[in-house]
């Protein structure tokens, strides 16, 4: 009985406490960098597209809202021919970012994506691709991969020996 009165009293006192509400459009909350919001595709430090079209993000996506088609340029560098995220399905779980082996796909602290027309929530590559490396500066997948692309031949990646001379029999 006393405890009931006590809780009534304590709840009543909350009338005089400070409000927790942030009055959103006028006031804005500070979002941390690892906040999982709008998804972007980033570029490597040399401004090349980071996405290599490996399909891992699409496979990781629990709502299957990512679809893409890999293709390659004349030098053998892979990139997505199209890259589509249906944000009307996205649950912002961040699995795509975790799955990405090249740091290309990243979730950024922006959630203001409301649309009156649901079709506008379908983002294509031109809406997704940004001009920078996002949260992970410095990383360039092709610098560690063994594939030869334009401007980087065989054996020119990090920690790679020059190509073997197969005609040599020296042990």
């Amino acid at each position: 009985m006393i405890s009931i009165v006590r809780s009534l009293w304590l709840v009543f006192l909350h009338m005089f406490h400070k409000r927790e509400t942030v009055q959103y459009p006028e006031q804005k909350n500070k979002l941390t960098t690892r906040w999982r919001g709008r998804i972007v595709l980033t570029r490597d430090p040399d401004m090349g597209e980071r996405c290599v079209g490996c399909y891992l993000c699409a496979a990781a996506c629990p709502v299957d809202c990512i679809s893409l088609q890999a293709t390659e340029d004349e030098t053998g560098r892979r990139y997505p021919e199209f890259f589509r995220i249906n944000f009307s399905r996205c649950i912002f779980c961040g699995y795509c970012e975790e799955a990405c082996p090249t740091y290309a796909i990243q979730l950024i602290p922006d959630f203001e994506m409301g649309e009156y027309n649901r079709q506008n929530l379908v983002y294509e590559k031109k809406e997704l691709l940004i001009d920078g490396p996002g949260k992970y500066p410095g990383y360039n997948y092709y610098k560690v991969a063994g594939l030869a692309i334009g401007g980087k031949g065989k054996g020119q990646a990090q920690n790679e020996a020059p190509p073997v001379d197969i005609k040599s029999l020296i042990p």
Binding site: A58, A59, C65, S67, R84, N86, R118, V122, E124
Partner: peptide, 16 residues
């Protein structure tokens, strides 16, 4: 079972 992109592959035509 890992088939991906079900809800996005045709979303460019219509989101439904």
């Amino acid at each position: 079972h890992r088939y991906s992109g079900r809800t996005a592959m045709l979303a460019n035509v219509t989101v439904s």
